[in-house]
């Protein structure tokens, strides 16, 4: 069985590209949905996708090579040297909850708008135009 660390050293550039590339692509896809989609629910989904990309970017920055989770479980009490940066993970935990709150509130506003205007298409909601 190949150790993950050996694979990491061997394909470091590829893994870097994959992780950062996925995160940046998620942000771009989300931004595309927010800016160009006409349906309000799709815009909210776009916001969630941007959220996911940013979280991935955060956690990826905190990763260290051959790292384990920053949890001092039995057997890992002295393994602090191998532990990944816990600060981005704690911040992402906060960000996920805030992202959930934002999504829930945005969806409730979408429901109100839909009930009022009978459509969720922002082109057909006349009162949004100015």
């Amino acid at each position: 069985m190949t150790d993950f660390n050996e694979l990491f050293i061997k394909y470091k550039d590829l893994i870097t590209l994959a992780v950062y590339g996925t995160a940046i692509m998620l942000i771009i896809i989300g931004l595309y949905a927010v800016l160009l989609k006409k349906h309000l629910v799709k815009i909210v989904i776009g916001l969630s996708i941007i959220d996911a990309g940013i979280h991935l970017l955060f956690v990826a920055v905190g990763y260290i090579q051959n790292g384990t989770a920053p949890i001092f479980s039995p057997g890992y009490e002295q393994a602090a040297n191998r532990m990944v940066d816990p600060v981005p993970q704690a911040l992402v935990l906060t960000a996920i909850v805030i992202g959930f709150a934002v999504t829930a509130l945005a969806l409730s506003l979408v429901i109100r708008l839909y009930k009022h205007h009978h459509t969720a298409n922002i082109d057909q909601i006349k009162s949004l135009k100015w």
Binding site: P70, I71, F72, S73, M83, P86, Q89, A90, T94
Partner: peptide
Amino acid sequence: ANSITAIV
């Protein structure tokens, strides 16, 4: 044990 919990 969980240092993320300690931070949060």
